[in-house]
Each structure stands twice: as C-alpha cells, then as structure tokens.
Design a protein around this nucleic acid. Sequence first.
DNA 1: CATGATATACTCATCCAGAGTATAAGGAGA
DNA 2: TCTCCTTATACTCTGGATGAGTATATCATG
Lengths: 301, 301
Amino acid sequence: MTVGLALAELIAVLTAVTQGEPKVMTVRRGEALPSGPFELGHRSLQSGLREWVQDQTGHPVGYLEQLYTFADRDRTHESAKRRSISISYLGLVREQAAPGAGKPGWHGWYEYFPWEDHRNGRPAILSDISDQLQAWAAAELPRREHRKRRVEFAFGLHDAAWNEDLTLQRYELMYEAGLVAEAGHGAAEISSGRPMFADHRRILATGIARLRVKIKYRPVVFELMPESFTLLQLQRTVEALAGLTLHKPNFRRLIDQQQLIEETGEVTSETGGRPAKLFRYRHAVLEERALSGSKLPLSRN
Amino acid sequence: MTVGLALAELIAVLTAVTQGEPKVMTVRRGEALPSGPFELGHRSLQSGLREWVQDQTGHPVGYLEQLYTFADRDRTHESAKRRSISISYLGLVREQAAPGAGKPGWHGWYEYFPWEDHRNGRPAILSDISDQLQAWAAAELPRREHRKRRVEFAFGLHDAAWNEDLTLQRYELMYEAGLVAEAGHGAAEISSGRPMFADHRRILATGIARLRVKIKYRPVVFELMPESFTLLQLQRTVEALAGLTLHKPNFRRLIDQQQLIEETGEVTSETGGRPAKLFRYRHAVLEERALSGSKLPLSRN
DNA sequence: CATGATATACTCATCCAGAGTATAAGGAGA
DNA sequence: TCTCCTTATACTCTGGATGAGTATATCATG
C-alpha cells in the first residue's frame, strides 16, 4: 500500500496595479509564476509564502488568500515517480519595485489574456477567438449543443452579456479547443496571448477570476492603493482589475454610501482639471463590518 | 536544504439532507470526518476522493468542490517529523445509506453547531454564548474594541442582523475564546455542541459556510434533491442548509423566474393538504447559464 | 358538508442600481 | 482677463428586484 507522500510546492499569483495597469509578478522573464518548496521551517502555508515573497521581492504582502491546490500527474518533479502538489495563492501588494534594480519582473495581466481587457471596448481578437471556438463546438457531434452554450455564455455572444468573472471558464474553453500555446497541440495560429510554463497561465487565470469576483463584495481593492488617493484613481484601479469601465457617478455613490473611506482634508491638482479631494481607507473602523458590503457598479459603455 | 516532502491527506465534508435535516458523513461514531491518504494510483485529487468515497459509502458524489488546504504543524502523523498536508473537500450526495448495514455514520450538522439552526427562532444557547464572548472581548484591553465589533457582527447582536454565512467566523471566535471543547483549555462549561477530533469541526464549519454562501448564487441544492420533488420540499432543503425559514411566496417566485425547474406533470398528495405538483431540475438546458443566477429570499420570521 | 391543511396566485410598497444631466473649480492659451 | 477645456462633484429619474402581505384553489377528514 502506497502512502501519500508528495512534494509540496507553493505558487503565488502576486498582483499590483501601477499606472492603471494590473500586473503580476513573474520569474524567467515573464514565463513563469514564482514558486518554491514548502519547507519544514515554515510555521504554516500562509506564513511560509509570506516570508518567501518578502525575501524575493522586498515588498510586504498585504492580502493573501489561498486559491487552489493542484496535483495533476503531468507536472514536473516526476523524477522519482513522486507526485507534486502545488498550493497556489493570490497575493496583493501595494507597490511595484522600482524597475531596474529588482529582479522580480512585473508583467501586465493582459499580455497573457488580451481578450480580457474591455476598457476600450470589446477587443478585436475576440472575433477570431469566438469564430474558432464556434467551429470547434460545431465539429464534435455528441455534445455539440452543450459546447455551443458554454461558448456563448462564457464569451457573451448572442443575447448573453460579457461577464468579466468568467476568466477561468474562457481560458479553459480555449485550452480544450487547442487555441492556447501551452497546450502544445494546435500551437495557436491566432495571437492568443503570451504563453507560460506548464499550467501557470491557468493558475493566473484562476487568480484573476477570483479577484474579479472578490472586489465586488469585499474591500480588497484598498490593498492595492497608496495611503491616500482620489476617487478617480480608485475607480481606475477597479476598472483595471475588472477590465471594464464603470459609471462614474454611480461608482462614487456606492463608495461613499458604504463609508469605506474618509477625506484626508487635502486635495491634489495633479489630475488635470479641478483639484480632487484625497481620501484614505478607514482601516480600523470597519475591518469586520466590511465583510458584507463593497459592491461595484458596472456599465455597458 | 530541506525539500518540501509531506504526507498528503484528503478530508471530506460529505453532506446530504434527509427529512429536512442536513447531515454530514462521519467516522469513529461521529467524532471525525472521513479521511484517507492521497495515493499514487489516483489520477487527480478530485478523482481520488471520488473513488474513495464511492468505495466507502456506496453512494456516488454529485457535486464536489475543494474547500481548503491546511498544513498546521500541530496535526497528527508527526511521527517522522514530517509535515502533513490536508486537502479538504465539500461533497454533496443525493441520499443517505439505508441506516443499518452501512458503516458510514450520518450525523446532523446542528449536533455540532446547535447555535447555527435558526429555523425555530434564535436558539436559547446563543444568549450564553454571546454573554461569554462579550466577557472575553471586554477582558483584554489592547484590542478590546476590535474584538467587541467582531463578536457583535458575527453573532448579530445590537443593530447587526444574524448572517447565516458567518458560520466559520463564529466558530473561530468561540475557539479563540476557549468556548469549544477542542480548544482544550476551558473545557466548555456551556453546551457548545459536540466536539470532534483535531480540527475536524473547524473543517466542517468551513464546509457549512461555503455551502450556505454557494446556494445563493449557484443551483447546487438540486444535487441534494431526489429526481422529482415539490416546491415545499425544495424550500425545506434550502432552509435546512441555511438554518433559516424563508418566505414561501417569494421563494416560489424566485425559483420559477430563474427557470431552473420544470413540472413533471405529476402530483403527489403525500404532503397533507392540497396535492402538490412535482418538479424536476432542468439539467441539460441550463448547466452553464445557471452559473449566474440562483439567489434565495431570506426573511425575518 | 364544514373544517383544516397545504398549494398556488396576486398585489403593494420600498429600495436600489443603471443611466443621464447639471454645476463647480482648476489650468492653459488667446 | 476672458474663454475654453478638463476633471470633480452633485442631483434627478426610472425600472426592476425584493420584502411583505393577502386571496383563492384543492385535497383529506370527521
């Protein structure tokens, strides 16, 4: 009887937003997510990863949440016929290292998922992608209708609207259809985003999807903001994550009716037009009550 | 340099609802959740658990979802100074084994968490619990206010309303305050529910919380229902999981405006009064579209 | 045939989210 | 200095969803 011995590995999807662009920390020149073995010295998984990231990047991790645990057999480390278990985490950090000295390479989310950014309208690539997916769906007879519905729903075709939360479902469909490079087979004639090592891009998709869902009911955005910020800066950050533009008046209404932030008393005129008030997150006061709220208003435009 | 070798173990929170009561599958006469090593032969974590449960209970698992991965050092299996990683899952099964022959022991959720069942009003135990928690919160000076707010929010004191989703937060607070038996110290003078081995009750709380959240936006309830059912049976099942009573007319409105179910054409008069129409879940048609909907109406009473 | 029980159908008020419009306050350039 | 442009901030309107209550239908039972 074999005992369940396995290699335990930690993988991090570390995200920051700088200049209105969501970034992920990578290694190997953008080809892989940072990862490392889970060592005996660590107190727990959570703290193990925290220490490890601190060492690697010099940045403290604000918010840290477990994503998923994988154990597929087609992973590396299969040297000794041993299984490798990967425990992935989503982490939010406040700032990006000064680009130059630091080794950590930050890359934009949308290099890897160009079809996920709808801030400037529906990306052109989506036409190609959905064409190919529909062809793929129509090809296989047995589960044809089922596939068609999955594609239409995930990509917001026909009557369905684009749903930014379905990042993972979209990637998985494209993977099944052989449209992404990692798959090996198919090799992706269309420009389907930058590939990554092994299943790292899938893990990144998991992280993006999780964060997009989360910002709607938990005030995690503030983990990505500087100490003080304007309302538009906050909105731009949310938009960057969601890959959508928001309705400005409604965004403001929602934010202040939740009382998550307070004025610092200062204003900044670095924004161009009329000077904007600066706000800060009300850490202390809410921490727990905030569990309930924090929705965000979406719009068509 | 230590390599991340660890024992991988699977733990399941298997849930069924019979006669309007939510149950969990246990071993050791209700003292532990079923668990087992993750073996080399398994294709993946998911399928490993699926096979294992099938063997143990004879029931197929309908819905299966990963809950959380733990790796605390105060777990068992610390024989060889080796860490043990526990990957927990939430599984839904349609029926309970005929009580008698089968070994699996099903126990009601609310044996372990009596304060979580509000279907017959606020349980009396909650007065004791919140008294003790407030005393505990008031005792420690430094973070007093913070603790007070956590308790009030989690248990719906003062202005806050009872929120059924906070099962895990409530258990954790009680654990911190030494009100549950697992904590060791304190030994729980009050009847704070049946204890479990190690951190199994915490894992159960995680599963309950996850399921309570999930039924609000995904049609997972149907994994617990028989092929055909009446609307009231469906409502009773949801109420059992949420630990709350629902507003009947609104429940019905919500269900049929989501078009999740369809009439079978038959009726049953086993329910007492006027015979009720039987319905079935529309598996095929929706599977994917259903991703969006499936909320449920809560009420005060 | 009345009564009690459950099933099913409607109505009403409130709140909230999406969408649009209007005014304020700065800077840049004619 | 005045005008225009840009961004910030404030207000209104409408439709739909949600919480809550009420009325009618159809069975079994005494």
